[in-house]
């Protein structure tokens, strides 16, 4: 099943405003420390990298490991500059990729 995510970006902001961005991704974030029912180690599989680009420029990057809970949520702050688009991309240890986009309108 494809990776599902929800993002929260204000639809509108005034130039210069600092606003919060939130993203939540459905992912088991398998730590690599858990055994299955037969005692075999379940391989580690976490979202290891997530980036956010604002009109093409990387504004946020997270590198994650085994210490992050399942279905992780991240929050960070951005300053509104120009109208355009936020693009989120992430990848897990198995190579599966996910992506979300959110438009933003910046007023003077």
């Amino acid at each position: 099943m494809s990776m599902l995510a929800r993002v929260q970006v204000p639809a509108q902001a005034r130039r210069g405003d600092v606003f919060p961005i939130r993203i939540a991704i459905q992912h088991s974030m398998e730590t690599g420390y858990r055994p299955d029912n037969f005692g075999r180690r379940i391989p580690k599989n976490v979202i290891n990298t997530l980036t956010c680009r604002y009109n093409g420029v990387e504004v946020f990057r997270a590198e994650m490991g085994s210490g992050v809970s399942a279905n992780p949520q991240l929050q960070f702050y951005l300053r509104a500059e120009n109208s355009g688009e936020l693009v989120f991309d992430w990848v897990d240890d198995s190579g599966q990729r996910g992506s979300e986009r959110a438009p933003i309108t910046v007023t003077a």
């Binding site: 599902l4 995510a5 929800r6 929260q8 939130r22 939540a24 279905n71 949520q73």
Partner: peptide, 10 residues
């Protein structure tokens, strides 16, 4: 937004 159950709703 924070409620992870909303991922299943989505």
């Amino acid at each position: 937004f924070g409620n992870p159950g909303m991922l299943w709703v989505a």
